[in-house]
Amino acid sequence: MSLRELVVLGTSSAVPTRHRNHNGYLLLWDGEGFLFDPGEGTQRQMLLAGVSAHDITWICLTHLHGDHCLGVPGVVQRIARDGVAHPVTAVYPASGRAYWERLRHATVFADTDVIAERPLSGPAVELPAGPVTLTARPLSHPVEAYGYRIDEPDGRRMLPDRLAARGVRGPLIGRLQREGVVTAPDGSTVTLEECSAPRPGQSVAFIMDTRMCDNVHVLAEGVDLLIIESTFLDVDADLADAYGHLTAAQAGQVAARAGARHLVLTHFSERYGHADEPRFTAEAAACYSGPVTLARDLQRVPVPRRRRSAS
């Protein structure tokens, strides 16, 4: 059975708090594991969340500020220590390569050769990632930063009533899916389009440290799950813009404009306390009518069930 869910490992911004670890997000997707922005303490958070180094197939850094990457040494060494045998691809902004190298080889340890590096540069980078495509686009932050989007290809779902009506059953169904056309028992030709309906692929966007820019909207367009920073409340909108961040209200605006199906708010400034948390949800919900999750450490958020188009 497929598993598509976000495992939240940390939700703070520059400074961890008693209740929120530095960033860390593991998106599990049908055997792939995309580890986004592992901040300090990620290795321990993974243990508490019940996930392991063997679940990681990608390490994706949005940028090289510490709260988004100081967990890399521990994660890399855990990959080596646990004997992870499958390839792990590391993607990060090319301008931060010197910092990546320091993190990748931070201490003395028995190294691993399974990690392949893929520095990012340019306006858009698309990478095949198992059953999906991983796309990176630059954002607007004081240092070079990228946001990510994961897209499953569109497919088709079979319609049992139409299959039965045409006498297509058993092994013929699989052949119809593979080849697009079969000969029914009565000698007639049956096409895939006759017995199926479009099945939109699922998608997830991961948008961290950025002020509003065109690529925020491009990355978020039509996604099933939008994971986005909401570092500040609207009262501090000027600070957010000055430091290259978003407010909760802006995150809600992005989700509404994009038609996102589920909004996950995260990356909260330590300046706000527990009493302020409902304000983040309220500000986002004032702009966006869909479900809003205020992310908490060790929480699991499933990717919404796929859309079903009309038959």
Rank of each mutant, 00 (worst) to 15 (best):
R199A: 15
I150Y: 04
D151L: 10
R162I: 08
L163N: 10
L163F: 09
V216A: 14
V181H: 03
A220K: 08
E194Y: 09
G167T: 06
A145G: 05
D209W: 04
A136V: 08
P185S: 05
V218M: 05
T135H: 12
A255T: 00
V264D: 15
L233Q: 05
Q202W: 11
A242L: 12
D234V: 02
Q253I: 06
E193T: 04
D238F: 07
L159G: 04
S188C: 07
A165M: 08
T210F: 00
G170F: 03
H245G: 03
L134H: 09
L219S: 04
T247K: 04
F206W: 11
T191R: 07
L139Q: 11
S188I: 00
R156D: 06
P198M: 12
A249K: 13
S140P: 01
I228T: 08
S121L: 13
V132F: 03
G122I: 14
P138I: 09
E229G: 14
V216K: 07
V143M: 07
A197I: 07
A249Q: 15
M212S: 06
P153L: 01
M208L: 10
E144V: 13
R166W: 03
G174I: 04
L120S: 00
G122V: 13
E179D: 15
A129E: 08
R166N: 12
T189S: 13
L176C: 04
L219F: 10
H217W: 12
E179P: 05
V218Y: 03
R169T: 01
S188F: 02
E144G: 08
